[in-house]
């Protein structure tokens, strides 16, 4: 592939200071390149550095050393305001704890990023209607975030992150607060935008989410211990009980 990678991290390191001033390495020399249209799932035990890594890639935390390039642009040397501009233009981020604007409606929360990026009000509204519809939230458009359940807020956060059709979607446990029916809506939307070419890098424990990805990156103690394709095994039409049984070779 000769296209500019959407993400390129080079020897990325993050060391926190513990309460007693001791250095705590969270990310230890990560190299990661993500090509346009790729869907990468980052997995690993708690404390392996997954969340730190995705926060570094989104500029929500500063790296200790190493380089971050987003869509061909050096990002790790940017100021906080430089990052804010870059994120607004290129990155949608779904946090573990949503970060919705409390005094705006759901509809406005979702439209805001598109409007900030210069979309026409009509385009922003259409995109918002499509995303809320896909996530089963159409009738919550006029509500305030505080009136929503955790699962609803999480889905609004995903809609907001996708409003802009960002160059890169970053997400930290995007199904962490969802029951299985709502997870299904999120899975369907992620699969759909991915098929439309959306580049996605997300942290997940949820095997269903990881199963949508093209590639899995596994972290252990702040280092990548596995990075490879999730190969499609076989394709068969239908969806009967027999298929599942056969899949498991019983």
């Amino acid at each position: 592939m000769t296209a500019t990678p959407v993400v390129r991290a080079v020897n990325l390191v993050k060391i926190y200071q513990s309460g007693r001033g001791l250095p705590v390495p969270a990310v230890r020399g990560v190299d990661l390149t993500v090509e346009p249209g790729e869907f990468v799932a980052i997995m690993g035990p708690s404390g392996s550095g997954k969340s730190t890594l995705i926060h570094l890639l989104g500029g929500l935390d500063t790296r200790t050393s190493g380089e971050i390039w987003l869509d061909g642009q050096r990002a790790d040397t940017l100021s906080e305001s430089g990052w804010a501009v870059l994120r607004r233009e290129k990155v949608g981020f779904v946090f573990q704890f949503f970060n919705l604007v409390a005094n705006m409606t759901v509809a406005d929360n979702v439209e805001l990023p598109a409007l900030l990026a210069g979309a026409s009000p009509r385009h922003a509204r259409e995109r918002r209607e499509y995303l809320l519809g896909a996530l089963g939230l159409t009738d919550r458009a006029a509500a305030a975030p505080a009136q929503l359940s955790g699962g609803e807020q999480q889905r609004v956060a995903l809609a907001r992150a996708l409003a802009n059709q960002p160059r890169l979607l970053l997400a930290d446990e995007p199904t962490g607060n969802l029951d299985s029916r709502n997870t299904r809506d999120v899975l369907r939307l992620l699969g759909e935008v991915h098929r439309q070419g959306q580049t996605i890098v997300l942290v997940t424990h949820d095997a269903r989410v990881a199963g949508l990805a093209d590639r899995v990156v596994c972290l252990l103690d702040g280092q990548i211990v596995d990075d490879g394709a999730i190969v499609k095994r076989r394709r068969r039409p239908g969806g009967t009980a027999g298929d599942v049984v056969e899949l498991h070779g019983r």
Partner: peptide, 12 residues
């Protein structure tokens, strides 16, 4: 792990 995830991909 990769094997399980490719099974999951099929299941999805």
């Amino acid at each position: 792990r990769r094997h399980y995830l490719s099974l999951m991909r099929d299941l999805n």
